[in-house]
């Protein structure tokens, strides 16, 4: 039976390989968004969203069709965020959702900060779109598909890829 969780769930209870249905709030950010987040933190300025205890979904959707909530929205390759991720984890990020492997520096930072890495199915953009019930623009709208958005998801199917002890199923 999958574990039902949201972003407030005690992630230290999760183990690599656990199957999850995630219902709650996630923020989308990918390459260019991460660069801005890290630059903002370096300047000591406030972020446009609450990073502490939050979940980031590595995704850049297709444009939203008229009358719909969002376009196709599958995960992108997490490894491209690896250079930025330890800084985000040190600043309170708890949950990362993406696809593929992570670097040893990210895994060490996850252990230090008690964070988890959840994997969604790469290339399942249409299926994941059907699990998104709300989408709100937050910041970096000039980045187009790379903008920071707040998504509400219902029953998003995920696996624990790497748990907060650093154990991985990949």
């Amino acid at each position: 039976m999958p574990i039902i969780m949201d972003e407030k769930y005690d992630v230290t209870k999760l183990r690599a390989g656990d199957e999850i249905l995630f219902s709650g709030t996630v923020y989308t950010a990918r390459d260019a968004g991460h660069k801005r987040i890290v630059e903002t933190l370096a300047k000591g300025e406030p972020l446009p969203f609450p990073l502490q205890g939050s979940a980031i979904y590595y995704a850049g959707p297709t444009p939203t069709k008229k009358g719909e909530i969002i376009g196709s929205c599958g995960p992108t390759t997490s490894a491209r965020m690896d250079d930025y991720t330890p800084t985000l984890l040190d600043n309170g990020l708890k949950i990362m959702i993406g696809k593929g492997n992570r670097s040893s520096a990210v895994i060490q930072s996850m252990i230090n900060n008690g964070a988890v890495y959840l994997i969604a199915v790469g290339g399942a953009g249409a299926l994941i779109k059907s699990k998104i019930t709300a989408c709100e623009d937050v910041a970096y709208l000039d980045l187009g598909c790379e903008a920071l958005r707040k998504l509400t998801v219902k029953d998003l199917p995920l696996l624990v890829g790497i748990d907060c002890k650093g154990k991985s199923i990949l």
Binding site: A124, G125, A126, P157
Partner: peptide, 25 residues
């Protein structure tokens, strides 16, 4: 199997709803 089932379901949803199977076009 968990992943393959989702990929197949995804591709069928895209076909039925005439939407992009993957966001990376």
């Amino acid at each position: 199997k968990w992943a393959l089932a989702q990929i197949i379901e995804n591709d069928e949803i895209a076909l039925a709803h005439n939407c992009y199977p993957c966001q990376d076009t």
